[in-house]
C-alpha cells in the first residue's frame, strides 16, 4: 500500500503576508512558518492506513526550500519518505497551479493507492486542492472525510463518512482515490524523540518542475487562474450601544428596544 500525503507550510500570522503584482500571496522573509494545522490530521490518517494495511507513507509539499522543515515533521511522525517540489518558476502559484505541481509529483512517485490532503488550507482557505487533483489524475475524490470505515487496497475499495451540510454521508469509491480530511478524523500522534532525531538527519530530495513533467507557463503566476486584487484586514467595527444596570434592568431595556424596532 502506498499513501501520499500533501502538506503545506503556512505563515503563522497574516501580518507579514502581502500580495504580489501577479495577485499571489507572498509570505515575505521574516515571518514564522508552520505546518498547516490541518496537516497532522492528514498525516495521521495515512499512518493509520499504513498501520492496518502495511506499506509506506510519502509526504510531499510544493514550496520554498525552507519547507523542508515541515517535511521533516512528517517524517518524525512516521512518514517513510518525503519530497519537496521546488522551482523558481513555480514560486507564486495559486492553489490551482499548486494542484498541477502536486499531481505531477503524485505521478512521479509511482503507483499509489490513496492521496490524503486537508479539506482546505489555513491561509488561502480555497477548498481547491482535493477536487483539482481528482481532475488532473482522473481519480475519484471524497471530500470532508471524518471517518475511514473501510480501506481495502487489495480489492481497490474505500468506504468513508463525509461531513456535509445537514448530516453525514457514507460513500464508497474505487482506489486509487483522493480523500480530503476534516479536523477530528483522528487525534494526531506526537512524534517520538527517536523519530525527530532520525528525521533531522534525513535528506529531502528536491524535484524541479522538469522532474515532475510540468512546464513553467503552467505553474507559478502565469499558470494561476485566480489572482488577488487586494488583501486587507476586515472592515472596521460599527458603533455598539452599551446597556447598563442590574440583570433585570438590562433585560427590560434590551427587550424593549428589540420589540420597539420590530426586530422580531
Amino acid at each position: 500500500m502506498k499513501a501520499i500525503v500533501f502538506v503545506k507550510e503556512v505563515a503563522e500570522t497574516p501580518d507579514g503576508v502581502s500580495v504580489t503584482s501577479d495577485g499571489q500571496l507572498s509570505s515575505g522573509e521574516g515571518g514564522a512558518f508552520l505546518t498547516d494545522p490541518i496537516d497532522p490530521y492528514s498525516i495521521e490518517t495515512a499512518l493509520q492506513l499504513k498501520d492496518k494495511s502495511g506499506g509506506e507513507v510519502i509526504a510531499i509539499t510544493a514550496g520554498e526550500p525552507r519547507a523542508e522543515k515541515i517535511l521533516k515533521e512528517a517524517l518524525a511522525m512516521g512518514a517513510d519518505e518525503a519530497f519537496l517540489v521546488h522551482d523558481e518558476a513555480a514560486s507564486g502559484s495559486d492553489p490551482y497551479a499548486t494542484a498541477r505541481l502536486l499531481a505531477g509529483a503524485a505521478k512521479k512517485s509511482g503507483d499509489y493507492d490513496i492521496i490524503v490532503v486537508g479539506e482546505r488550507a489555513a491561509d488561502d482557505n480555497s477548498y481547491a486542492i482535493g477536487p483539482a487533483l481528482g481532475q488532473h489524475l482522473d481519480i475519484p475524490v471524497l471530500t470532508y472525510v471524518n471517518e475511514v470505515r473501510e480501506f481495502d487496497p487489495e480489492n481497490k475499495k474505500i468506504r468513508v463518512v463525509r461531513s456535509i451540510d445537514g448530516g453525514s454521508q457514507v460513500v464508497e469509491a474505487t482506489l486509487p482515490a483522493v480523500i480530503t480530511v476534516v479536523k477530528g478524523i483522528h487525534e494526531p500522534r506526537y512524534p517520538s524523540l527517536m523519530g525527530i532525531r532520525k528525521a533531522s538527519k534525513r535528506e529531502v530530495p528536491v524535484w524541479s518542475i522538469a522532474d515532475i513533467g510540468e512546464e513553467a507557463e503552467r505553474v507559478g503566476p502565469s499558470g494561476s487562474p485566480t489572482r488577488m486584487r487586494s488583501f486587507d484586514p476586515p472592515p472596521p467595527p460599527s458603533g455598539c450601544e452599551m446597556i447598563e444596570g442590574t440583570p433585570e434592568e438590562v433585560a427590560e431595556q434590551l427587550v424593549g428596544k428589540i420589540m420597539d424596532k420590530k426586530i422580531l
Partner: peptide, 18 residues
C-alpha cells in the same frame, strides 16, 4: 470577495480562468 487566514484578511479576487 472572500475571507482568508480564518477571517483575519479579506481578499478581492479576480478569476482569470479560460
Amino acid at each position: 470577495t472572500r475571507a482568508c487566514f480564518g477571517g483575519n484578511r479579506t481578499a478581492v479576487v479576480e478569476n482569470c480562468s479560460p
